[in-house]
Amino acid sequence: MSSCFQIAAEMKSALLEDRIADLSMVFLRNGAYPPDLAWDPAPGHFEDGRLGQLCDYWQTKANGAPAAFWKAIDPTELRFILGYVMLLDVLDGGADFRYRLYGSLIAERFGRDVTGKTVRDFGDAEYIVNFFLATYQAVTEARRPLLSTHYPRPESQTASWSRLILPLVDETGAISRLLVGQIPGEWRPRAPGTNPPAF
């Protein structure tokens, strides 16, 4: 296992074992604030009501089960969060994840559309790619919703990104996809002549 993938595995373990201080150190070493994290988020955790509504929608489709059936998700019922939804395919049991759908408004804020790419091919700062991979792997393994808000480095144009990650099962009962709502925070104008990362 390469050092990059080992870091993701360590971050996943920290998430599953609620060792948030260990995960936070990765962000601090990279000049970013530690993320806010909540398993099974309650209504009071959502700063943006659209993520709370998405969580309610998923819970309704799950009908008391640990995860909703992926075919029960109807895109026409997600108009309230249109443009801020991602759908990821779980590859090789969670070794990687492919962006089947990458919301148009997320792509607009991020500066590129990564539909069809995998998380490992995301092409951003290594620490944040590892964080994305770790959160998706943790949700796949735990079969629980996870709400995360991370705060990009000061040179980023986006002050924060809030993501609600929801597991979806297939006919075999395996977690085969993830439904993700992602909402950007405050916009920070970019200084002339600079092109900083979005994350």
Rank of each mutant, 00 (worst) to 15 (best):
residue 3 S to L: 15
residue 4 C to P: 05
residue 8 A to F: 05
residue 9 A to K: 06
residue 9 A to W: 03
residue 11 M to H: 05
residue 11 M to S: 05
residue 12 K to E: 15
residue 13 S to L: 11
residue 22 D to S: 14
residue 22 D to C: 08
residue 24 S to M: 05
residue 24 S to E: 13
residue 26 V to K: 00
residue 29 R to W: 06
residue 34 P to E: 07
residue 35 P to K: 02
residue 36 D to A: 13
residue 38 A to I: 01
residue 41 P to D: 05
residue 45 H to C: 12
residue 47 E to K: 11
residue 48 D to I: 03
residue 49 G to M: 13
residue 49 G to C: 09
residue 54 L to C: 07
residue 56 D to L: 15
residue 59 Q to I: 06
residue 63 N to D: 15
residue 64 G to Y: 07
residue 64 G to D: 09
residue 65 A to H: 13
residue 70 W to P: 01
residue 70 W to H: 14
residue 70 W to I: 09
residue 71 K to R: 15
residue 71 K to I: 06
residue 74 D to V: 07
residue 75 P to Y: 08
residue 76 T to Q: 13
residue 78 L to V: 09
residue 82 L to E: 14
residue 83 G to I: 08
residue 85 V to M: 06
residue 88 L to F: 03
residue 90 V to Y: 01
residue 92 D to A: 11
residue 94 G to A: 05
residue 95 A to E: 15
residue 97 F to S: 01
residue 101 L to Y: 11
residue 102 Y to C: 03
residue 104 S to Y: 11
residue 105 L to A: 13
residue 106 I to A: 04
residue 109 R to C: 13
residue 110 F to N: 02
residue 111 G to I: 12
residue 112 R to S: 14
residue 113 D to F: 11
residue 114 V to C: 08
residue 116 G to S: 11
residue 119 V to S: 02
residue 120 R to P: 01
residue 124 D to V: 10
residue 124 D to Y: 10
residue 132 F to L: 10
residue 133 L to E: 01
residue 136 Y to F: 14
residue 137 Q to K: 13
residue 140 T to R: 02
residue 145 P to R: 02
residue 146 L to V: 05
residue 146 L to Q: 00
residue 147 L to I: 03
residue 154 P to C: 04
residue 155 E to P: 02
residue 160 S to A: 13
residue 164 L to N: 00
residue 166 L to I: 03
residue 166 L to P: 00
residue 167 P to G: 04
residue 168 L to M: 05
residue 169 V to K: 02
residue 172 T to H: 12
residue 172 T to D: 11
residue 174 A to I: 08
residue 177 R to E: 08
residue 178 L to A: 04
residue 179 L to A: 06
residue 179 L to R: 01
residue 181 G to D: 06
residue 182 Q to D: 10
residue 182 Q to Y: 05
residue 183 I to D: 01
residue 186 E to K: 14
residue 193 G to A: 13
residue 193 G to K: 12
residue 195 N to E: 14
residue 196 P to R: 09
residue 199 F to C: 15
